[in-house]
Amino acid sequence: MTSSIIRVTHLSKSFGDIRAVDDLSFSVNQGCVYGFLGQNGAGKSTTIRMLLTLVEPTDGDIEIFGMNLRSHRRDILRRVGAVIERPDLYKYLSGYENLSLFARMSGMKVSRRRIMDQLQQVGLADRADSRVKTYSLGMKQRLGIAIALVNDPDLVILDEPSNGLDPQGIADIRNLILELSRNQQKTVLVSSHLLSEIELIASDILIVDRGKKIMEGPVGELFDPSRMVVEIQAVFPEKARQVMVSSDWKDRLQKQRGDTFIFELGREEIPVFNRYLAQQGVDVLAIRPRHSLEDYFLSLTSANQHVDTFTN
């Protein structure tokens, strides 16, 4: 039943000497919310731009809806909607004009009612005739989404949709994605550098770093029980830290946040480490295993800058 909407094979893109995307292969199944994760500069945007024919791949193939992107560009784009990075629009035109302009470019017959319906859905109906210049960032983002959805696409691509939005805006986007996926059976590819965003909505994820694939798969299968991330909260963090860094366990310490230490441990190591701390007179307040993409990412990449990027 599940067929691939997007199939990317050995995709590469170089800008001069810089290899932005390096031999990337992945596929996105119909109806899923596909999370595309990576730091800024990991190659997410370049990949998305290749999916949307903005950037020509150096190497590799892209198939969307079972058609080759290069040879069936227009047939494919007719069924795709996208918001790419910042929601940039014609500031000197109204929201209504922006939306109707892009709808017409998508080859649609445009009626005022249909455009107004779309604006209604994203809560902009009452500002339809104001110039976009006067919109807040959140309003522009919603208008961008209305533009992406105006041609009723089967595939929706959202590149960093939560960037710069307030918590309410982020929640709105999250609900919208779930609505598109669950109730409208659309396939959604959403990229972010925030794991916390993606883990709440994605059914599958792809993680890239420096242009290369690190991991791909359903969210549920991504946790490796042999490498768990554990939070240990101590009563006297100073003393605890001294004990920890002078022990054999010091390499397992990922990060300290106030009185909480984050360790990467195997499932059976947790009681051993706990016993060791007790023996050394460290009073442990709590030990909590963490099950999130964020922690998962930590366990995959031990480099500290990743930890900083993904947990802040």
Binding site: L52, R74, L77, I84, D88, Y90, F102, M105
Partner: peptide
């Protein structure tokens, strides 16, 4: 400069 070029080019238009 406005950032609208990418929106234009992702329309199904050659």
């Amino acid at each position: 400069n406005m950032g609208t070029l990418r929106l234009l080019v992702t329309r199904p238009v050659s």
